[in-house]
Every structure is written in C-alpha cells, then in structure tokens.
Amino acid sequence: MENSRFEECMNRIRNGDREALKEIYESYHEYIYHLLLSITGNHADAEDLSVDFFLKLWNSGDRYVPGNGHKRWITVIARNLALDFLRRKNREIPYESEQLAQEADRKTWNDPGYDEALGDLSVKQAMEVLTPSEREIVHMKIAGDFTFRDIADILKIPMGTVTWRYRQAIGKLRRCGYEAL
C-alpha cells in the first residue's frame, strides 16, 4: 500500500469509516500476524494481538502523522504490543525463550555435521529452525521490505548485529533447502 493511500485510509478511520480499516487489514494483516508470531512464537497469541493491533489503529487514527513511512509506524506499534504482552505475561519469557533457542541453536550448529543439509523442509519448519530474533529480522526484511538500517532502528540494535543475524539465518535456510536471499 502506498503512503498516500494509507494516509487517506487513516483520515477515513478518523471519521469512523470501517471500510478504510478493512482496506488496511487486507493489505497488512498477513504481515502483522507473522511479525507478531515471530515475536510471541504462539499462533493464538499472535492472532489475539493482531486483533488488538487493528483495534489500536482504529482508536488512534488521529495519532498518525503522515510523511514518515507508514510501514515502519505500524511495525513499531505491533512490536510494542507484542513486547508489552510478553512482559505482562512474564517479563522473563522473551529473554528466556531467546536464550533457550540460542542454546539449542549453538548445540545444533556447532555439531560436526554443521554443513550437512537438513533436507527439504517446509517454510514453516525452516522458520522454526531460526531463533526468534532471526525470524523477526528475516520477516521484516522479506515481508516488510525494510533496509537493514530501518530494521536496526526499529529493533534498537546495531546494524552490524542485524546483518550478522540475517547472515546466520540465511546460512540455516540454505541447509533447509532454500537458496540465498
């Protein structure tokens, strides 16, 4: 969706036009849902948060300031929702889940058979091979079409870290039977 179109929809939302929200939903519900899924790792939570996200758009249409890229704006909103949710649920969960994933990751990928192909995995299976942070970056890069600089800004981490994690993810995906991005 173009920026101008998004702005128009947000203007209509301010006036209570549900069709405008539907239009944004049609364009972005897949992106938002999978972004939230990459963070929460749970389909039910991702769906609940996706609903919350669109309700927040509806209620905060007047807070959108045009001219700075709507995709980044909605990404930040969705991430904040997910992070707040995880903190409410248990503030250690995101760290621990990432820690456990990285622990398993290190064990797996430091094996002597590291270079061996895992086989022909589905995308879903391949994504599960990635750590949550790698999934998030891959999703934002592919589905969000963000630059590494944008991703670093959104995640508040150094760009070097983003590119490194992305390269790690690419390496793993190759082993799963997918060509480099």
Binding site: L21, H29, E47, V51, I142, L181
Partner: peptide, 25 residues
Amino acid sequence: MKHFEDEYNQYMHCETPDFWDRIEK
C-alpha cells in the same frame, strides 16, 4: 533449491487466519 522469498510469501498467505470478524465485532 527453492527460492525462500517466494515460498515465504506463499506461506504467509496460506498460513494467516482471517480474523476480520473478530475485529469488526
């Protein structure tokens, strides 16, 4: 080898539930 970007976009399309009814309500 399969092209990940294409496959991922297809996966997103197929694996996303439709929750518009919940929003609308």
